[in-house]
Write a protein that binds this DNA or RNA. Structure first.
Length: 911
DNA sequence: GACTCCCGCCAAAGC
DNA sequence: GCTTTGGCGGGAGTC
């Protein structure tokens, strides 16, 4: 008899994720809920035998319905009144409710009474969290009383306080609430959310969660949870090597726990788990994390030795708790990842995009609620020390020098706006505080949206200015950067995604560009990836997805990691090839990114390519499966970029379509891919690349597991997104096609990248067609390795293209083609011929034995056995390795071979 | 049978 | 010593 609030919530799980449901839930509903509760429980008391309580019968007045929602909206206009009325109602009716329940219990048999109780779903933590969140505005004004009394909340929501703790703890981990005192919390709403996510992402990167995910998946497929001593030890080393593995709570400046109780409490794991769970999403390129992996990581960090089944189950339970709350916050969404081994529950990040390098500046621009924007990374140790020794007054972070000027400029502008006597609404700068002018959450929504739009516009201008400045410095033409607006969502109008939307293939930036600008400078640029021939072989060693597809302009997922990863690697020294891939998540600062010198890069590339070639020549002649397996596993372990593990799940929105059309065999596959190219709604499913045996230039197959720079990103088009606000991906693609511009410098923007970087360049968005790479020089030239879907437009012919001289100069300059070879430039941007040609080739060539994955986006690494069997199953025999690799003729040669793809299926479906 | 996750015991920490 | 907080796992509900 503890919980009767479920009657008001008839929404089931399916409704949780539906938009209407969410929008309704945005509105306060406590009063209605209480009223209905009272009604439904009093009724049986009056006529217990004639009108047994049936929660379903109160549907007409259900708060989730539009009609009742109207009432709720009205009541939402005055939270005080609502609260007062609720309290009055509660006090008046509590005794009646109890009496009614008692009476009901007496009159109904056990079964009947059980049936009268709210169902399990109606008591779910997610629904409870919805109710909880509905009580408070997303963006509360500081003028309002935003205190939370747990007792009151628990009473009003008719739940145990224990449940409230579950919610509050998760909210606390996101700094949406903070504990003030015993039984008392402060509600901050989403004001701090973006900042928190940025901090979490940074910490997640520092903690190398990406690597841990890779490691876990690798282990999973290698040994099927074979936790023998050796593996155990190895895994422990893996986790132990992480100096940040201790459980820490990430705090924000000014958001430290006030109560010493929380700080000294050794077991804050729900909070910490929640943060780490979020981190996993933020560092994963396809932001899908399975519960299993998350649980293992959390356990692994915590107590690896206790990695038993019960512990695992417990972690899973907790993760469900957290996930329910995060789902209510619309930060994640439940999906299922289907692979050969079964259907696994997973969650997909649906919250705002978070880009680490611009976080702080963005904060400086958009957030004024919190303490002054803090820049520079917060190390986990710092956070831990902050946690242990809260020092509210002390500034623990410093702003990067490159940001000071920008921030000052922003602050000056803000002051001007705030002090402007004629400012109609004071929402421009003081988002949070000024929102107090609005009487209700309802009123805040448009205001916040307006404010955000204004802020975005302003920010875009700032960014643009800096871009221009930076571009001048590095002789680069900067693309226009205009943030891509989020779909209208009142819940998070000011969240980072509104501003941080790298679109298209993002070229790496240059050292002179302030880190803040970096993601924006990437936006809208298409880069051709010129893969060094010696690198091509790596495609054959292991890649969960071999269908190379152009990256759509609108593709966002993973692009941010491209930037950081590519940039990061450009600064990597010669011998750090392992680290480069192992540490793709380190945040960068401007001083860490020297301006790229193409000459140095090309030399380095060639050098590495030669080394790589030697390396692979050695590997190639290992015929025994064990050796192959070992080297493969090692490569995977060392070099597998973060995105690879979850590539399966990338572009989840396209999964369903892909699942429908994904062919099983090569021919079918090819045809299916070709069909995909024609599909409007999957712009990234376009080109397939083939390379011919004796072609010196191989077009970008971003293979993973490479130690060395394997290619170059060469800007093809400029695809400004500034005009794409509000456009769908498809529309953006079309826009892009009309806005190609050329780069003035053939060298500027040419970024040497390693294969793993290439993969980082949103390889999940690629579909590397598992074709025998055979291209004539013409076909090579006609094959856009990496182009936006917009290139598929019929307008591409008229679009400005990089000149042939630019391309040839670039290619020659970086040593990808001999001096005498010239590559026509125009075809690079012509997609259609490639597709058709490719189709022809794939159908005619006997060497085309590749088998596409059921989905183009495999999430997990295949089992080594499978890899071996499938990758190296060639016409010559299962153990031959005629895969693409440099032959003895030199690094500019690609031996004929066949690429094989493991036939693992991996699908992601949303519930 | 697996998946979800509610529920409440109970211990640590706080007051 | 009482209250608050929250880890934890049994087991019920759902698929």
């Amino acid at each position: 008899m503890q919980q009767a609030g479920g009657e008001m919530g008839t929404g089931d799980k399916e409704n949780h994720s539906s938009e209407p449901y969410r929008s309704i839930l945005k509105t306060p509903l406590k009063q209605a809920a209480t009223s209905h509760l009272v009604l439904t429980e009093i009724q049986p008391a009056c006529h217990p035998l004639t009108t047994p309580p049936k929660p379903k019968e109160v549907l007409p007045a259900d708060p989730w319905t539009p009609t009742s929602n109207l009432k709720i909206l009205i009541s939402a206009a005055s939270p005080e009144i609502r609260s007062r009325e609720q309290r009055r109602e509660l006090s008046n009716n509590t005794s009646e409710v109890l009496q009614a329940k008692h009476c009901l219990q007496e009159h109904l048999s056990g079964d009947e009474y059980e049936k009268s109780q709210p169902s399990r779903k109606e008591k779910s933590l997610g629904l409870l969290c919805h109710k909880f969140l509905a009580r408070y505005p997303d963006y509360p004004s500081t003028a309002e009383n935003n205190y939370i009394c747990l007792d009151e909340v628990a009473e009003e929501l008719n739940v145990e306080r224990r449940r409230i703790y579950d919610i509050v703890n998760v909210l606390e981990s996101l700094h949406m609430v903070s504990r003030l005192a015993k039984n008392r919390y402060a509600w901050h709403g989403r004001h701090n959310l973006s900042k928190t996510l940025q901090a979490l992402k940074r910490v997640g990167e520092e903690n190398k969660y990406t690597q841990q995910i890779q490691m876990i998946k690798k282990r999973e497929y290698e040994h099927e949870f074979d936790f023998d001593g050796e593996r155990h030890e190895e895994m422990a080393r893996s986790f132990g090597s992480n100096e940040h593995s201790e459980m820490c709570f990430v705090e924000l400046p000014g958001m430290e726990f006030r109560a010493a109780s929380v700080n000294s409490r050794k077991d804050k794991s729900l909070r910490v788990m929640s943060q780490k769970f979020v981190m996993l999403f933020l560092v994963s390129t396809p932001q899908i994390v399975s519960l299993e992996v998350a649980a293992k990581i959390l356990i692994g960090e915590d107590q690896l030795e206790d990695l038993d089944k019960s512990k695992f189950k417990t972690k899973i339970r907790r993760l469900y708790d957290i996930a329910n709350v995060l789902s209510s916050l619309e930060l994640i969404k439940k999906v299922h990842v289907t692979e050969e081994r079964g259907r696994k529950p997973a969650f997909k990040w649906t919250g705002p995009e978070v880009l680490p390098d611009i976080q702080d500046t963005k904060l400086a621009i958009t957030s004024t609620t919190c303490p002054p924007p803090i820049t520079e990374s917060i190390t986990s140790k710092e956070q831990c020390s902050k946690n242990l020794f809260p020092s509210r007054g002390k500034q623990n972070f410093t702003r990067h020098p490159s940001l000071i000027k920008l921030v000052k400029s922003i602050e000056n502008d803000r002051r001007k706006i705030q002090s402007a006597p004629t400012s109609p609404v004071k929402i421009s700068a003081g988002t949070d505080q000024n929102l107090s002018a609005f009487p209700s959450k309802m009123a805040q929504v448009p205001a916040i949206a307006k404010h955000q739009l204004e802020g975005q516009s302003k920010n875009a201008k700032e960014m643009k200015m800096n871009l221009s400045r930076s571009a001048l410095e590095c002789n680069l033409s900067s693309p226009e950067v205009v943030p891509k607006p989020e779909p209208p969502r009142a819940a998070a109008p000011s969240q980072p995604s509104a501003l941080v939307q790298p679109l298209g293939v993002c070229p790496p930036s240059h050292g002179s560009v302030p880190p803040v600008i970096l993601p924006h400078t990437h936006s809208g640029l298409s880069y051709a990836i010129y893969l060094h021939p010696s690198q091509a072989h790596t495609v054959t060693t292991y890649s969960p997805s071999f269908m190379l597809q152009p990256l759509p302009c609108a593709n966002v997922t993973g692009i941010k990691s491209i930037n950081s990863q590519v940039l990061n690697k450009t600064t990597t020294e010669e011998g750090d090839n392992q680290i480069a891939t192992d540490d793709p998540t380190k945040s960068l600062t401007a001083k860490e990114r020297p301006t790229i010198k193409s000459e140095t890069s090309s030399q380095r590339c060639l050098k590495r390519s030669q080394a790589l070639q030697e390396n692979h020549l050695i590997k190639r002649y290992r015929s025994d499966e064990e050796s192959l397996d070992t080297s493969l596993g090692e490569s995977i372990k060392n070099e597998r970029p973060p995105s690879s593990s979850s590539q399966v799940n990338n572009e989840t929105d396209n999964f369903q379509e892909e699942r429908q059309s994904k062919p099983e065999t090569l021919d079918e596959n090819t045809a299916g891919c070709h069909d995909q190219c024609k599909r409007e709604d999957t712009p990234e499913d376009e080109d397939k690349i083939k390379t011919k045996q004796d072609i010196p230039v191989a077009f970008a197959i971003p293979a993973h597991e490479t130690f060395f720079p394997s290619g170059y990103l060469i800007p093809l088009t400029q695809c400004p997104h500034g005009n794409q606000a509000g456009f769908s991906d498809k529309e953006k693609a079309g826009i892009c096609s009309l806005q190609h511009t050329t780069y003035s410098s053939p060298i500027a923007g040419v970024i040497p990248v390693t294969a793993s970087e290439l993969k980082a360049v949103n390889i999940p968005a690629f579909h590397i067609t598992p074709l025998n790479i055979m291209l004539s020089p013409t076909s090579i030239a006609a094959g856009p390795v990496l182009s936006n879907s917009c290139l598929n437009s019929s307008n591409t012919g008229s679009a400005p293209n990089p000149s042939s001289s630019v391309l040839n100069f670039t290619l020659q300059h970086v040593g990808l083609i001999p001096a005498g070879v010239r590559v026509p430039a125009n075809p690079v941007l012509q997609h259609v011929p490639v597709s058709s040609q490719q189709e022809n080739v794939s159908q005619s060539s006997e060497n085309v034995n590749l088998q596409e994955e059921k989905l183009c986006v495999p999430k997990d690494p295949p089992q080594p056995q499978t890899v071996t069997e499938n990758f190296f199953r060639t016409p010559g025999g299962p153990n031959t390795v005629p895969s693409l690799s440099a032959n003895s003729d030199g690094p500019d040669r690609i031996s004929q071979g066949t690429l094989y793809i493991p036939q693992r299926k991996l699908e992601v479906s949303e519930d």
